[in-house]
Nucleic acid binder design. Structure first.
Lengths: 368, 368
DNA sequence: AATAGCACTGAATCGGACA
DNA sequence: TTGTCCGATTCAGTGCTAT
């Protein structure tokens, strides 16, 4: 499979090539109803203002590229409507599209998708196992991105490999939330200077799941925002044909070199690093949120110490407040304390360690 | 706290009541800038023909699919724009809103939110630990819903209890994906016939986290789609005032009975862990004035930098003089520096951060 | 040859009080 | 409104180097 960069001839479908140019113009030059799947990672329109520093004073390398800047919501909406319409023209009647985004753009893209006539099948949450933290403590850690999966129109017979996905999920029906690590390490492509070649390279594991789920071998997968070619690389490994469109020459060059190296299905590069398989962590606060213990309830220790539960899952005793472990340690004048076995609550007149409630939650988690 | 159902008097803010009527009309009758938080679970079963009608009230027949789809979406968008505008008028300048939805409506609601002038702070995924499986195996298990958290406008000083949420998550900052079970069992309200009283009753654990995160005790929380009153029940337990608006009498009756049984937690349990930012400010000069450090004493940094204390509470080092923060930043060539943790002094032969002395002063202040 | 420790990094809409 | 200055704030990793 050779990879070339060129302008397409009108009416021809150039396979396994990276096409140069504006994606709307290029898509309009391709024959209609010729593509099985589109995967699109459009600009997010992040609208970042000043610099951001980590607590250690290092500067966060922000996405400030020109291609991510739009004058207004209105101009972003016109852009979305235009490329979504051009993409829809290319789809076979039973074709489908995936779009990925964050809260900055995904609501606008999703609405545009519906307005264009696509039919949403699922929204999928990519839960990042290792997201960047919120350094200033001003919001929640932005730990996920959203994908939308839609068919060309309502009632279309889209492709969905239910059993294959069930296998990917240890025999259990695949859910709409996927836990996958972000793209780091050797998978992350570098430029000649050794810097990251693209600010938003997606992990191959994500594309693997998308392509296995919604295409068959031999299908044509188009990516109008090709970047460094993750979609093409995974499509090629999985025996699908791809068409990439990319405006920036630097990205095209990196993608071409990458694709030239891709040969066959390479099981190792797709193996998802599993997060630690030990017992899941259950925050004590969850017992409070779930009403298993209520704020104000009094916990006791075997030695007769008492503490009261607060609404945020901390305890307050005479003179001290903090986590179940901290308060236990303080009251015992010990360096540490396992709050789960130390603190007890009353059930049916008997004193029971709160660890019982944690075991209850873990049992539920295992059942799901 | 008594719960009543009535029509509000214009200009008055009726607290801890369920107001009957269309939420837009009722909201427009309430005084502006009077509410701290809005939680909204808008209906999204308005899809297609049924509840919708064309702008000119003409009958919809399924001849023109494209037009019909547009009319439906357009009508839903106008509904969203209207209630979001009415809600925004009620918010105090530093107020915030939460909206929950699924892929059927959340993209349209999110776009409308942005168009109305709200500023999105996070989107949050409620990951259901026990979702309904997809029986037909045609799609992914729809295992999550999406919440959007937004301030009234860009740059507003919204409330976020960062430390409390960190505590709820075992000392790690809270992420944008929340794993919580759906509302079942005793918590799920039944009607007289023993059927579920409301089709989409939300779990109290979800509201607990929302309200702890983004309000303080005594705040006013409004829910324009009150349903069976989960927002009101949790607000009341947590010592917040609520305002509910609900059109359906059957839901109002269930909610009233529910709220009558709810008790508020005691004041001490409602306190949550505060951030250091809320601690009183202690000028460094006070340590010198009080003789905890004497002029001429040498402070050191972990990296071996040195500076000398001056009588006015400034430091002087090679080439630089100024506040503890300024001198630390200059010596480290850093944009900023927390002098309290950066500078150390000698006590009993050991090097101790000067923050210890500040903590000593704060402890004294608390005791008095 | 392991292992510990350190540096670095990731689609981020990331102050606030007071003068 | 604008400017100044205090001083609070991070998680899960990867990979290189020193021991």
């Amino acid at each position: 499979m050779k990879t070339k960069t060129k302008q397409p001839e009108a009416g021809m479908l150039p396979l396994n090539e990276i096409l140069a140019g504006d994606c709307i113009e290029v898509m309009n030059s391709l024959p209609e109803a010729s593509v099985d799947l589109i995967f699109a990672d459009p600009p997010y329109n992040l609208q970042l203002k000043g610099d951001l520093h980590r607590p250690d004073n290092s500067k966060v390398d922000a996405v400030d590229d020109a291609w991510d800047r739009f004058a207004s919501f209105d101009s972003y909406d016109r852009f979305s409507a235009d490329w979504l319409a051009a993409a829809r023209r290319l789809l076979k009647p039973n074709g489908a599209i995936w779009v990925i985004g964050s809260y900055h753009n995904i609501f606008r893209v999703g609405a545009a998708l519906q307005n264009t006539g696509y039919w949403i099948l699922n929204d999928v949450v990519w839960r990042k196992s290792n997201p960047m933290p919120n350094f200033r403590g001003k919001r929640l850690t932005n730990a996920h991105e959203t994908l939308i999966w839609a068919s060309k129109s309502e009632g279309a017979k889209y492709t969905f490999n239910y059993e294959a996905l069930k296998q990917l999920n240890e025999g259990i029906q695949m859910r709409s939330d996927w836990v996958l690590p972000i793209c780091t390490g050797h998978e992350r492509l570098k430029d000649e200077a050794g810097d990251k070649a693209h600010p938003t390279q997606k992990p191959e594991s994500l594309l693997h799941r998308v392509i296995v789920a919604t295409t068959n071998p031999g299908d044509v997968v188009l990516d109008p925002f090709f970047g460094t070619g993750t979609t093409g690389a995974v499509a090629k490994k999985l025996g699908r044909d791809f068409i990439g469109i990319e405006r920036e020459e630097a990205y095209r060059k990196v993608a071409e070199a990458r694709l030239a190296d891709v040969r066959k299905y390479d099981r190792e590069s797709l193996a998802v690093t599993q997060s630690k398989r030990s017992e899941p962590r259950v925050p004590f606060g969850q017992l409070v949120e779930r009403g298993m213990l209520r704020p104000g309830e009094v916990l006791t220790s075997p030695g007769g110490k008492v503490a009261k539960v607060r609404a945020d899952g901390t305890l307050v005793a005479d003179q001290v407040a903090g986590s179940i472990h901290q308060v236990g340690a303080a009251l015992e004048h010990a360096p540490s304390c396992n709050g789960w076995t130390y603190w007890h609550f009353k059930r049916d007149g008997k004193s029971v360690p709160i660890d019982l409630l944690r075991q209850q939650i873990r049992a539920e988690m295992r059942a799901n």
